[in-house]
Simulated assay, not measured.
Amino acid sequence: THPWLQYQLYRSYGDRRILEDQWETTRRLVDFLGAKSKGGVIDKGISDHESLDPKPAALTGTAFHFACVDLLARFARILGRKEEAEKYAVRAEEIRKVFTDRFLSPGTGVFGKGTQASQAFPLFFGLVPGPERKAAVRAMVRAVLEDHQGHLATGMFGTYMLLHELSRAGRAEAAYRMVNQRTFPGWGYMLERGATALWEHWAFSDDTFSHDHPMFGSVDAWFYQWLRGIQPAPGAEGLDRLVLRPCPVGDLRWVKAHHEGVRGRIVSEWALEGGRFLWRLVLPPGVRARIYVPAKGEEEVLEGGKPARSSGGLRFLGRRGGAALFEAGSGEFRFSSPWEG
Rank of each mutant, 00 (worst) to 15 (best):
A195T: 07
G297Q: 13
L272D: 01
W199A: 07
I266E: 05
F103E: 06
E165P: 09
G40Q: 02
R288A: 11
G286M: 03
T196C: 08
E173K: 10
L314P: 11
E24A: 12
L283A: 03
R17L: 09
Q119S: 10
G331K: 00
Q119E: 04
A295L: 05
F204H: 13
G45K: 01
Q22F: 12
G158L: 00
A328S: 10
E340F: 10
L72F: 10
V179F: 12
G331N: 07
I95L: 07
A172Y: 09
G112A: 03
T100S: 09
L252Q: 08
S330C: 09
G341S: 13
G150N: 07
G186Y: 07
E200H: 04
A221T: 14
D220E: 14
W199K: 07
L252F: 10
L145S: 15
G40F: 01
Y189G: 01
K87R: 15
H259P: 09
V41E: 14
K82Y: 06
G40K: 05
R309H: 07
E192Y: 02
F223K: 11
L163Y: 12
W226H: 15
V179D: 04
F326T: 07
R320M: 13
A175M: 03
G194Q: 03
S118F: 00
A271H: 12
P284R: 00
